[in-house]
């Protein structure tokens, strides 16, 4: 049991984080809180991917001087898996872009209704 927890607990933490963001997205009334929810959700996914790349006892995926010029054979287990890092660099940018568009739309809504509470907006929109 203890082994299981030690082997998986980080995934569970990210899932809990994801669900906090997810809950904020679907249940919060304030539009900005929903946007914060998006951010928490996406950040948790990024953490999840990054944790896939982890290898116990490995270092950053930048070749050391001795590996660089072919003097030694490269030990794969010595370097972290670089691929998830690359994917998440892209995902971070996507997250920022989503945040930008979401805030722009929120500004439009605020200009029109002078509030960001969803129930008040719906009352006014009727």
């Amino acid at each position: 049991m203890f082994d299981l927890v030690m082997a998986k607990y980080n995934f569970w933490i990210y899932i809990v984080l994801m669900m906090i963001g997810f809950y904020a997205m679907i249940a919060k009334n304030n539009l900005i809180k929903k946007i914060v929810g998006i951010n928490i959700f996406q950040t948790a996914i990024i953490l999840f991917y990054i944790s896939i790349s982890f290898k116990r006892g490995a270092t950053l995926p930048i070749l050391t001087e001795s590996d660089m010029h072919g003097h030694t054979t490269i030990e794969i287990a010595q370097y972290l898996n670089p691929l998830p890092h690359v994917l998440m660099l892209t995902a971070i940018v996507v997250m920022v872009a989503t945040l930008g568009v979401a805030l722009a739309i929120a500004i439009l809504i605020y200009r029109k209704y002078h509030t960001l509470e969803e129930d008040e907006i719906l009352k006014e929109a009727k």
Binding site: A7, K8, Y9, N10, F11, S51, I52, S53, F54, K55, R56, G57, A58, P61, I74, I76, A77, Y79, N81, P82, L83, P84
Partner: peptide
């Protein structure tokens, strides 16, 4: 978590390194 022999760490990515 952190297993160097997991599929993600041993299937495609070694070639990059």
């Amino acid at each position: 978590w952190g297993d160097p022999n997991s599929p993600a760490n041993s299937r495609i990515s070694p070639r990059y390194i």
